[in-house]
Amino acid sequence: MTKVSMTVNGKPAQAEAEGRTLLSSFLREELGLTGTHVGCDTSQCGACVVHVNGVAVKSCTMLAIEAEGADVATIEGQAAADGTLNIIQQAFQDHHGLQCGFCTPGMVMSTAALLQENPKPSEQEIREYLEGNICRCTGYHNIVKAIMAASGQDVSAIAAE
């Protein structure tokens, strides 16, 4: 076991990890941050996406030890301290961008990374960026709509189908 330290959602965090401990397990089991979901554990679904030093990664496909000293952001850090949803989360709620909610933490974290890189993405760019985030419920349509809304764009172009 090794002591692994990182900054998680702006606060210092430290716990023991084995070599094989995944960042997803470290966050969920050592730090109790179970908002990061593990859908597939095979690098396919994106439910486990978090940010490491500002970029999106699949936390089920990164060793906790590799995040030593890193700045990690998870879904728990997205809402304000008083629970007010951030603009992306609110748009997902307003536009019905979730049903069971299992994929949502990864969707929100991928969206946050997308909007950092590209503040006004086109529908096509949104769909391409979310290629690694799988949703079994929504059919993606309302997720795309939510992201258009969160980026301050007109959603009427993406009419209900």
Binding site: S43, G46, V49, V55, A56, V57, K58, T61, M62, S110, A113, L114, Y129, E131, G132, N133
Partner: peptide
């Protein structure tokens, strides 16, 4: 290649 998260690692 793959998706954004795969490309970042």
């Amino acid at each position: 290649i793959g998706d954004p998260a795969v490309r970042n690692r």
